[in-house]
């Protein structure tokens, strides 16, 4: 699956409270949440983000709360993929579970700037920066996790498993 989009770059420890502040946790649909995505770190983001854009960030992206509203808001905003130096573990699980593609690639992060265009091949884990022409390879997802991704998220994956059990 090929993705391509303009980069929004942020630093280390982007926490779930700035991705979607708690004052909006009385909302729960991706569309409603997207209107406030990244509001406390970058008030321009929600109004200007285009479908397919890519968030690039430093270490420990998504640290803090377990709120699934965070990846839902990002996905709802039309972001096609998040590339970070590293992810906080609950955010990592949540993104996989709801079908938001994420990749860990420190070198790509270090050599990418806001406004660059990245193309990402999720199948091979290859990231290309169209401005610099440089290509990066990330380690593929473990097979077990890839199974969840290929099913379209944890819910379709579990439905398949439950059906298998009842057969």
């Amino acid at each position: 699956m090929m993705l391509s989009g303009t980069v929004w770059k942020y630093g280390d420890n982007v926490d779930t409270d700035v991705i979607i502040p708690a004052r909006y946790l009385n909302l729960s649909t991706p569309e409603e949440l997207a209107k406030h995505c990244m509001e406390d770190i970058d008030p321009t983001f929600a109004g200007a983000v285009q479908a397919g854009d890519i968030i690039v960030a430093g270490d420990n992206f998504g640290c803090g709360s377990s709120r699934e509203h965070a990846p839902l808001a990002i996905k709802g905003a039309g972001v096609s993929c998040v590339v970070a130096r590293s992810f906080a573990r609950i955010f990592y699980r949540n993104a996989i579970n709801i079908g938001l593609p994420i990749l860990e690639c420190p070198q790509a992060v270090d050599e990418t700037e806001s406004g660059d265009r990245l193309s990402v091949d999720l199948r091979t884990g290859t990231i290309t920066n169209e401005r610099t022409g440089r290509t990066y390879h990330t380690s593929p997802l473990p097979e077990f996790i890839m199974g969840i991704v290929q099913s379209g998220g944890l819910i379709p994956y579990t439905i398949k498993r439950l059906q298998g059990r009842n057969r």
Binding site: G64, S65, S66, R67, E68, P71, I90, R93, N94, N97, I98, G153, L154, I155, T158
Partner: peptide
């Protein structure tokens, strides 16, 4: 809830996850 790890004080393995994980 991310602070589910609190119960580790009792010698339990307790960890936070998101809503979809919890639904399953």
């Amino acid at each position: 809830d991310s602070h589910t790890c609190t119960y580790g004080a009792l010698g339990a393995f307790a960890t936070g996850m998101g809503s979809t994980d919890i639904a399953v």
